[in-house]
Simulated scan of single mutants.
Amino acid sequence: MTVTGILLAAGRGRRFDPSGRRNKLLQTLGAEDDSGGPGSAVVVLSARHLLAALPRVVAVVRPGAEAVAAQLLALGCELTTCPLADTGMAASLAHAIGRAREADGWVVALGDMPHVQPSTIQSLKTALEQGAGIAAPMYRGQRGNPVGFSRRYLPQLLALEGDQGARGILKHSPVTELDVDDIGILQDVDTQADLHPKDNT
């Protein structure tokens, strides 16, 4: 079974910087990180953790995001640009899935979640390989990201629209929930305060 990573890195991050001058994905984390060391960009850490568990990662960016694209290409991600990225996350997700539609399953990760452990991603991959239709990680009773989807959801993923991503699919479908010791599944970089070190234990 072939499971492909999907990295969503096409958002504008307006809450992080309403002016749009600072792309949150390119900001560096102050925390020491085993994968990237201090000073690695948010999107670099997110991508590295995905690449550590999956042999193929398709990253989607918005038009004009050359700096983000360059960093992801340097890491070994396959890159695709979604011309409709500004219409919402669903457009970016559907676009990326279309690029990797031949896969048997996908682990969909967010470019602004750099604390997710590779072991969590590996657990999602294993769940898909063992027959789960949708797999999601749980930390102390809270569901987080990334989320794994099997090929049976390909038509629904390709048909996504709006800014809710795949939430509608998750709401109306059975989900295999995996308990993980990884608070990173709940931690995104939404504001500048989120760049400060956090305990990921």
Rank of each mutant, 00 (worst) to 15 (best):
L8T: 12
L158C: 07
A85N: 08
R12G: 11
P114E: 14
Q156G: 01
Q164N: 09
E102V: 04
R151V: 01
A69P: 03
T201G: 13
I97R: 02
G162W: 08
F149C: 04
A59G: 05
R14T: 14
A90W: 05
A91N: 09
P118A: 01
A31C: 15
G184L: 12
K198V: 15
G5L: 07
G11V: 00
W106G: 00
G105E: 00
L29A: 11
A100H: 07
V108D: 01
R99M: 03
G64Q: 05
T28W: 06
D199W: 13
L160I: 12
G141R: 07
S119K: 01
P83V: 12
R21W: 06
Q117H: 15
R62S: 14
T2R: 15
R143P: 00
R22Y: 02
E129T: 07
D199F: 13
V58I: 14
A127T: 01
T80P: 03
D182C: 05
S35Q: 12
G105S: 04
A9S: 13
G76C: 15
S173E: 14
L72P: 04
G133W: 09
S92E: 04
L170K: 08
G131E: 01
I97D: 01
G39L: 12
G148E: 03
V107T: 10
V60F: 11
Q117I: 00
G133E: 10
R143Q: 14
R62W: 05
H115E: 14
G98S: 06
L45K: 09
T4Y: 12
D188L: 05
D104K: 08
G165S: 09
V42E: 06
T191V: 13
M113H: 06
R12D: 00
F149H: 03
Y153S: 01
L170V: 10
H115K: 10
P155F: 09
Q156P: 00
V44W: 07
A91I: 04
L50I: 13
L8H: 09
R99E: 11
I97Y: 04
F149G: 01
R152N: 09
D17Q: 07
